[in-house]
């Protein structure tokens, strides 16, 4: 299937070019994935997503890729770029420092087609840890006041509220690579986000969910999740702080 295609005389003279290798795979009729190669021109600011869209526009419109916001906010365009999980919209080709850019679907997620993967398990795990404030009263009743927090209380969890559910952390995690039942760093970090929130009263029920052989005890603090997070969430920190609380190291 490998082929090399290129555009001639369409880009400005300052543009350089790279070989973009895109993994092509349709689970409905392909035995295994194969790479297609495209010669793509790029500028200093060109992102990998723009290069893929360039391929779709000029060479092969059938390349399957999920994207939306193009500004690292929606978490749709996660993929393996030159061997590491990254957001395609947040990765400039010039930063990769390579003449060949390889894009593959994220590991540890079922492939829908080409670069698009299924997020059902990620969302199920996220939902499983009850990602909402749990308490008996509500601020929606007119007599109640707002649930005020000090800046210090907000600092305890706001970092973890930046999660965009892109799945890069689950793709990089060595435990996720072999354990299909592991809840994953994304959900565990979100469990910490709500446990650390001073407004939340659902700590005990949440800890029961993650206190499982395929829950928080499966994390071995390899830290790869934090290294690939495009929003600075640092799931490894959240998981260790949560485990420290469960082990009695922290109050």
């Amino acid at each position: 299937m490998a082929q090399v295609s290129s555009i001639s005389n369409e880009q400005s003279s300052t543009a350089k070019s790279i070989i973009l290798k895109i993994s092509r795979y349709n689970p409905e009729h392909d035995e295994s994935s194969q790479f297609m190669e495209f010669n793509v021109k790029y500028e200093k600011w060109t992102t990998v997503l723009e290069a893929i869209l360039d391929v779709k526009k000029h060479f092969d419109h059938s390349v399957a890729v999920r994207y939306s916001c193009r500004q690292a906010t929606c978490g749709s365009c996660g993929m393996i770029i030159n061997g590491k999980p990254r957001l395609a919209c947040f990765t400039k080709i010039s930063e990769l420092d390579s003449n060949v850019v390889t894009v593959e679907p994220m590991n540890n997620f079922p492939v829908i087609r080409d670069l698009a993967v299924k997020f059902e398990k990620l969302f199920d795990s996220h939902q499983k840890i009850k990602p909402y404030l749990i308490r008996d009263d509500t601020e929606l009743v007119s007599d109640e006041k707002e649930f005020l927090q000090t800046p210090e209380e907000v600092e305890q969890y706001i970092q973890f509220a930046n999660c965009i559910k892109c799945g890069l952390c689950n793709s990089a995690c060595p435990t996720m690579a072999t354990d299909s039942s592991f809840v994953g760093p994304q959900a565990l970090a979100q469990a910490y986000r709500y446990v650390a929130d001073s407004r939340d009263k659902g700590k005990d029920s949440r800890l029961k969910i993650i206190d499982d052989s395929h829950g928080i005890w499966r994390c071995h603090f390899a830290g790869s999740c934090s290294q690939v997070c495009p929003k600075g969430v640092d799931p490894a920190m959240g998981i260790q702080l949560l485990r420290g609380y469960m082990l009695g190291f922290r109050s």
Binding site: Q156, Q159, A196, V233, D234, G244, L247, F249, R250
Partner: peptide
């Protein structure tokens, strides 16, 4: 590290 020792403190992340 598993006990949360030496893993840093939560803070607003900067690029």
């Amino acid at each position: 590290g598993h006990g949360g020792v030496g893993v840093g403190k939560p803070a607003r992340p900067d690029y």
